[in-house]
Design a protein around this nucleic acid. Structure first.
Length: 578
DNA sequence: GGGCAATCAG
DNA sequence: CGTAT
DNA sequence: GCCC
């Protein structure tokens, strides 16, 4: 029983003489044995002055040998000279080159690069140019993004959130305790940034260098990632296709993970990779293979493998199957290899989805669920739920998380995180300790019952109670995955079925719940990874120190960032996924 | 060559 | 184990 | 696929 999807694919990708592309085994043998040092997008102009003709010719052929291109001054993105005095060099440059801040390097850069078989950083060789007039603009926009992100959670979150903790704040004690092998102090973190920054050799007219905001770090949770990349979003969308395909193909989950990380690295890179795409491999998470694809994309305007995947009917069909709740890559493959080609086929084959929803009901509401939800409707749905809850458990607060909180104009679902009020039992009961689990369950129960009775909740997809690793008695949430049908209103002229996640938890770990439910996916994975490396376990029920059982008190998101020694990242800059 | 997030119910 | 978040 |  071969489960390899693409074997059943009737080779749709043999198009004329085009390079044959095997979806299962992408060609990796084709890489040249002699690695090119320069990208073909490196266009070099060598100032003739002061050089003998022989020297000049030698340099020009060296450029070609290394895989670069010789260009005239107008099209060059690097200029080489044997002179040292900027004032003198300027006389040989035209105004345009100066305006564009094309980097001017000493010729030894080329020789050294040839010797090292490696594209060396411009910086040590740079005589002039290389500054970026675009940088200022981008930084401003970034700043705007941060400042302008007035979260809607303020509407209901009564207690004003204190500003993000400054880098060096008082509660460092925890960190020092965990100062084992890989927990870093903040200073070490900074050092890491510096080290990470220098080897980035790109430069290329405007690039990283001199950009204090961009850090080539390896945790997505450490770098601001906007909703969409301003410069490379089209590339990101291409790579996302490859990621999906690796998931669907099976046996390549780790490749999919790698594409996810590469995508997040590109999302956070605030410059275009176009001028010098081969430099992409300097981004943490982008290795030789993906770098090659990026070069191909910017040189040819497309990635051949992506084109092939997009056309592949097996890929299309299985992608559609996966839209059904309860159908992941495995079942999609099973359906497909079982002969299913349409949703109707899937219904006929039946089988359990391991979900309370029946498959045909699932299919019936699917057209609605595929539609995105405008922000105003997200808010209205949330309010409906919260109003009801506030009757059951007065004094609660809520935050709309998920994509909404990250600033997406349209959401796929509604994630609402509710914090139950502090118990407050007449002088008794300190800050820590047991929260009333039974009450939590009861509250969720009542809430669901009421909303079902009012026909607001139409389907309960699943109810679960995520808890801390070791003991259920410590910190748990109630999670209800439901489908609602809001009533018609001004903001909802055409009501549709909408997926809603209701998360209900104690006040003490509210910050963890909010952080855990805000995403994005890659952001979550990396903050969990970081936590692990620092001796913690993090998930939406709380931040737990290794060896402990009870989670730390983290009523606010900021508490977690601070404990992890992580700079606060505003929700709108956590869009680390495609 | 090991690790890649961490948890849930069916 | 496969799936969902 | 990528990183340490």
């Amino acid at each position: 029983m071969s489960n390899s999807v693409h074997q059943s694919t009737p080779s749709p990708n043999r198009k004329g003489k085009q390079k044959r592309i095997d979806l299962i085994e992408p060609q990796n043998e084709s890489s040249p044995k002699r690695q090119r040092v320069l990208s073909s997008a490196t266009r070099i102009f060598i100032l003739a002055d002061k050089l003998t003709t022989e020297e000049h010719d030698a340099l020009r052929s060296l450029v070609v040998d290394l895989g670069g291109m010789n260009a005239n001054m107008t099209f060059a993105n690097v200029i080489l000279t044997s002179m040292r005095a900027p004032r003198r060099i300027e006389r040989y440059l035209n105004a345009d080159v100066i305006n564009r801040h094309v980097p001017v390097l000493h010729t030894s850069w080329l020789h050294d690069s040839a010797r090292e078989r490696l594209l060396l950083a411009y910086e040590p060789y740079k005589i002039m140019g290389g500054a970026s007039p675009e940088l200022e603009k981008q930084r401003e926009e970034l700043g705007l993004d941060v400042v302008g992100s007035s979260e809607h959670e303020q509407t209901e979150e009564k207690k004003a959130i204190p500003p993000p903790s400054p880098p060096h704040s008082d509660s460092q004690t925890l960190q020092e305790e965990t100062n084992d092998d890989d927990s870093q102090t903040e200073d070490e973190d900074d050092a890491t940034f510096q080290r990470a920054l220098t080897p980035f050799q790109s430069t290329q007219q405007e690039d990283c260098e001199g950009d204090p905001d961009w850090k080539n770090v390896d945790y997505a949770c450490m770098r601001p990632s906007p909703l969409k990349s301003k410069q490379n979003q089209a590339l990101v969308d291409e790579l996302e296709v490859l990621r999906l395909q690796r998931i669907l193909a099976g046996k390549q989950e780790m490749n999919a993970t790698a594409y996810g990380r590469a995508i997040s690295a590109i999302k956070a890179y605030p410059h275009s990779l176009q001028p010098n795409p081969s430099n992409a491999k300097n981004l943490k998470g982008v290795g030789p293979k993906i770098a090659k694809l990026i070069v191909q994309y910017y040189e040819e305007g497309r990635i051949a493998e992506v084109d092939a995947i997009r056309k592949d009917s097996a890929f299309q069909t299985m992608s559609r199957f996966m839209q059904l709740y309860g159908v992941g890559p495995k079942r999609a493959r099973e359906y497909y290899s079982g002969g299913a080609r349409s949703m109707d086929d899937v219904i006929k084959m039946g089988g359990s989805l391991g979900v309370h929803l029946h498959i045909d009901e699932c299919l019936r509401i699917l057209p609605d669920l595929q539609r995105t939800i405008p922000r105003l409707e997200v808010e209205e749905i949330s309010k409906t739920i919260f109003d009801e809850l506030n009757i059951i458990a007065p004094g609660s607060t809520y935050v709309i998380c998920g994509g909404y909180r990250r600033g997406k104009p349209e959401s796929n679902d509604v994630d609402i995180v509710i914090s139950l009020p502090r118990p407050l039992q007449r002088g008794e009961e300190p800050d820590r300790g047991i929260w009333n689990v039974k009450e939590q369950i009861a509250v969720m129960d009542k809430l669901l019952k009421t909303l079902k009775r009012k026909a607001f909740i139409t389907h309960v997809v699943n109810v679960s109670t995520p808890a801390s690793v070791y003991e259920m008695t410590y910190s748990r949430l109630e999670l209800a995955e439901v489908v609602v049908m809001p009533s018609r209103s001004e903001t909802i002229p055409v009501p549709r079925y909408r997926r809603v996640d209701i998360i209900l938890g104690p006040w003490e770990t509210h910050g963890a719940a909010v952080l855990g439910w805000t995403g994005s996916r890659q952001f979550e994975r990396d903050i969990r990874l970081l936590a692990k490396h620092k001796g913690f376990t993090f998930h939406s029920t709380g931040l737990v120190h290794q060896g402990e059982r009870a989670p730390l008190s983290t009523p606010q998101e900021e508490d977690i960032f601070e404990i992890l020694g992580l700079e606060y990242m505003p929700p709108r800059l956590r869009n680390c996924d495609a």
